[in-house]
Design a protein around this nucleic acid. Sequence first.
DNA 1: TGAATCATGATAGACGTCAATCATTTTCTC
DNA 2: GAGAAAATGATTGACGTCTATCATGATTCA
Lengths: 352, 352
Amino acid sequence: MRAPTLTDVARHAGVSYATADRVVNARGGVAEKSAERVRRAIAELGYVRNVAAANLSQGRTYRFAAIVPKGQDTIFSKMQGLLEREREKLALDRVELLIEQVEAFDPRQLADCLARLDRDGIDAVSLVGTNHPAVIEAMTLLRARGATIVTLVSDMPEEARDAYVGIDNAVAGRTVARLIGMAHGGQPGRVLPIVGAMTARDHAERLAGLREVLTETFPDIRLLHQIEGRDRPELVAARVGAALEAEKGITAIYSLGAGNPGLIEILRERSAPAPRPVVVVHELLEHSRAALEEGLIDVVIDQRPEDEIQRALEIMRRGADRLPPDPVAPLGAAIYVKENLPPEMGAKTGDD
Amino acid sequence: MRAPTLTDVARHAGVSYATADRVVNARGGVAEKSAERVRRAIAELGYVRNVAAANLSQGRTYRFAAIVPKGQDTIFSKMQGLLEREREKLALDRVELLIEQVEAFDPRQLADCLARLDRDGIDAVSLVGTNHPAVIEAMTLLRARGATIVTLVSDMPEEARDAYVGIDNAVAGRTVARLIGMAHGGQPGRVLPIVGAMTARDHAERLAGLREVLTETFPDIRLLHQIEGRDRPELVAARVGAALEAEKGITAIYSLGAGNPGLIEILRERSAPAPRPVVVVHELLEHSRAALEEGLIDVVIDQRPEDEIQRALEIMRRGADRLPPDPVAPLGAAIYVKENLPPEMGAKTGDD
DNA sequence: TGAATCATGATAGACGTCAATCATTTTCTC
DNA sequence: GAGAAAATGATTGACGTCTATCATGATTCA
């Protein structure tokens, strides 16, 4: 029960190997009725092109690019580190991975980067979704050439990309509402949300999710007006400090953007024997891990960048192999407390 | 910058292709000093055998087996379904996946199954770890032949298997302690643990983890003596019912084995306006999902069988390809509340 | 009807590896 | 130093695909 080869297809269709090859590789110069017979033979035999043999014959190496926004101790810097590790593994599989850095929130630069990759003849690109006409146009050109594009972390319109890899931010907000609700054990309370900016789609979605479940399921817990921290630690620290002064009965804090070092600093200063509010933040990074271990915060919601990258690369590879994408369940965010922190996958030993 | 081939290695070592081939494929008949030169050339050039070309040349198809314990609406029945889906995908990659069923908790039958697979010349096997001399012996024979063995869900001694894929059960217990602790919001309480049997290693580990964190971190929450439900719903129902009658101040229930339909039945009967205990169970299955949606339970800890299977297959494939296993972070359990349930990946459409 | 165009067939070399064979050289043993 | 044994070299055909070239047959157009 050997898998059928293109030779089998040709024989079954009653044409020569050359003609069958012309059809599957779209070389043209085939009469429609012959092409149709080949296509039927493919369907009937269940022929699947042997990608390994094809790549072998061509000495083909894939060229993938990952475009990562700059930033220190953010989800993006973590992703960058993970991607650099993947690069080595991929090299063994004849895949070249370019890692491109761009300024965060700079659509123009992103579009330029895409155009450059297009000129380089890249096979697939992953990027953090950014809704801007220039970006969408550059993506359209890339895809017209056959390249695969994956949006990471933040999505874009469906027609602009081949796949989205990331968590559902509304679900994340709803989940946090449940956890905060549970932590109140039926008691009333007040939740202070800290966003980066309400213009960021993911932040807005998280907050909306939080609000929904609080009002529906935990009506005794009041949602205070959000603080905007611009994802900057010093700003977060100042504004949270002020809020904690002004509003006394805060029983929970949900930081749904970046800038968490500022929040943690404030919490450390105020750590008192008195019961502190329940604190939930996003992304497991150095500072948030430390704060969780220290007991300054309670829960970290993490989008598991390791898995996101694996998935993105898998999709890119399938695209480059001309295989249809396979449907998988969307990624769920991980919920970390002090007790289930994953081991730190720190510095790699340099031998292999 | 082409990847080095075995021809490059031979040239660099100053030997013929044939000799280099004898070394990498361990055919014997090579003087030690030649072998050493080949090995050094491999190291210096960073040669990696091109698995695709190798498999192509041999028309090799992998033969993997997954041994799954029987059982309805358990983690194993779920895994079986997932494996059946994977089988189709794997077939396109020239991998044949056998799915073997055995009675749960029957080491003899498991050992027989392994022996049979050994005779069949299987390349890799995954099984649910079972510590029994007959099983270990069968595994030793299989591995002596070069087959890769992965223990799933429950581990075995390190020297008996190539890899373990599953969650850390002590961590799971500790995590649940934290969640239950948080849900008490500083109030005292009593936790009723339900185990299948204390002889099951995973159950014992979960309970130990729970106890540790409760005593260390939440001293006001008392751990009651465990109920043994033998993983049988009707037994669980009877004993939990009795316990709830006997002990009035139960504020939390942790079901760390199977038999959850019995627990859920009792909870449904007793659903009263009065605050019910916090309920945490293991494994996201039909009944636990429904109970979570219904609000009868609060948290489900799930070992994400989808990911476990992916990982197990990946390890099996690497083993069959004679590649070194790559170190990855252990799998973390997922924490589900009502708000972050994954979509049901139900009936597949039959077209592709 | 002859020439140009189009469709098809046949075939060969490359990719990197494995498995095999046979010839040759080196090393060992007495 | 002769003969046996061991080590090495040289080479070949497969695996399935891609790319290319050349030859042949069929169709179309002037």
